[in-house]
Computed example of a mutant assay.
Amino acid sequence: MQNQLIIPRRGFSSSEFEARVARAQRIMSAHGFDALLVSAPPNVRYFTGFDTQFWESPTRPWFVIVPLAGEPIAVIPEIGAPEMALTWMKDIRTWPAPVPEDDGLSLLKSTLDSLPKRFGRIGAEMGREMALRMPVSEFLRLREILGSPVEDGSPCLWEIRMVKTAAEIEHINYICQIASDAYEALPAQISIGESEREVARKLRIDIARRGADSTPFLPAISGPGGVQQIVCGPHDRILETGDILFIDTGSTFDGYFCDFDRNYAVGSVSDDAHRVHEALWLATEAGIKAAVPGAATDDVFRAMSKLIEDAGAIGNNVGRLGHGLGLQLTEPPSHRLGDSTVILENMVLTIEPGMEYAPGKMIVHEENIAITRDGARLLTKRAPRELPVIR
């Protein structure tokens, strides 16, 4: 049965953020941190609900401190205080940024130094798939002058964020349904002879009309019987009979991403292309079935890779067969050998088998799932087993 399209409430309640912080503080205690210092937009948004298009300006740094006990503290430029005050945040400390000679550093130091010290360590965004949104020189200076050492808090942050709340999953489900419907409608809107760029433009418009907030990621790539890569484009290449058209989208609703692709046959395509598409459809089924609580990401990889190898794969330049999903297009974990992340209930994952079956000819499938106690629940509408045709 397909999911019903119910528009989620925008934003989250104070109780949602209180629960996120309470869980985060339990995990912080296990990691031995007195506080987490975050500056990147996804982490700031996760703990506060604050969002702004002004992230596009790199001039001012923004900070949120999650202490081991009590509510988070925002240390932000004055320009953002009115909007931050509309969130659940109560402790908002500001400075008149930009002040390059001291752009919030002394205020940040005094705030961190004032926190109770149980472990004597502060965690920051220093590791895997994290980024500081402040000058590196300023961060190094902070480490020199702070009363507590600042260490890599990324494992702690990802342990917090990899497991989603019900409200987060509802948001992801909604944008997945929007994009699924737009994918299904696409063949009727395009035709042989149009360019990849025109196809991408039409799909982007349709996704927006259906309710998406933005589509930051939409590569549309075509090639005879398959594509060479899946991350760049669209280009001005014209769709020709015999092509496979690959489209991937990372569209958002209220900050949360979908990330899945669809493949289309342009006119008639080779028997090999149909065969590989079928093999990947079956590999996707195997990956979905393997994604159960208690399994490891390695297990999901193996379930798919066996079928891909049997189908005659000669390569796969993606390097993994799926990943986490949420406030970012790609998040940990990765379905690859050696990742070894244990899959937990309420994780949101992509299942993404792909294979190069001849030089320069690659096909990739992708679906998005939420992990329940009984296994995977599709958030996307399952790709058709037979390639949809563009005429």
Results as ranks from 00 to 15, higher is better:
Leu349Phe: 14
Pro61Met: 05
Thr165Pro: 03
Leu140Gly: 02
Glu71Ala: 11
Val75Trp: 05
Leu307Gln: 06
Leu115Ala: 09
Ile314Asp: 03
Trp281Thr: 10
Ile92Val: 10
Glu151Thr: 14
Gly312Lys: 03
Val318Leu: 14
Leu280Trp: 02
Thr59Ala: 14
Pro234Phe: 01
Asn346Thr: 05
Phe54Ala: 13
Leu115Thr: 08
Gly250Asn: 01
Ser340Met: 13
Tyr264Ile: 06
Leu142Val: 06
Glu83Asp: 14
Glu16Ile: 11
Leu337Tyr: 12
Arg9Gly: 03
Gly287Ile: 07
Ala212Ser: 13
Asn173Gly: 14
Ser137Asp: 14
Asp206Val: 07
Phe12Ser: 14
Arg262Ala: 12
Asp102Gln: 00
Trp95Val: 00
Gln189Tyr: 01
Val99His: 01
Asp91Asn: 13
Arg204Glu: 08
Glu129Arg: 13
Gln229Tyr: 11
Ser148Gly: 07
Val99Gln: 09
Pro67Lys: 06
Arg391Leu: 04
Gly70His: 00
Ile314Asn: 08
Met304Glu: 06
Asp271Ala: 15
Ala200Lys: 05
Pro100Ile: 00
Gln25Tyr: 13
Val150Arg: 06
Ala383Pro: 03
Phe47Asn: 00
Pro359Thr: 09
Leu112Val: 07
Arg391Glu: 08
Asn316Ser: 00
Ala303Pro: 01
Pro359Met: 10
Gln228Glu: 15
Asp254Cys: 05
Thr297Ser: 03
Tyr183Glu: 07
Cys156Trp: 09
Arg23Gly: 04
Cys258Asp: 14
Asp34Ala: 11
Gly360Asp: 11
Tyr264Leu: 07
Arg20Gly: 10
Val75Cys: 08
Ser148Asn: 14
Asp91Leu: 02
Leu140His: 07
Ile122Leu: 15
Cys258Ser: 12
Ala188Lys: 13
Thr52Gln: 02
Ser15Asn: 11
Val99Ile: 08
Ile27Asp: 11
Arg204Phe: 03
Gly338Thr: 06
Ile288Asp: 04
Ala74Ile: 05
Leu327Trp: 06
Ser191Glu: 12
Val300Asp: 00
Phe301Ile: 00
Leu387Lys: 08
Leu218Glu: 09
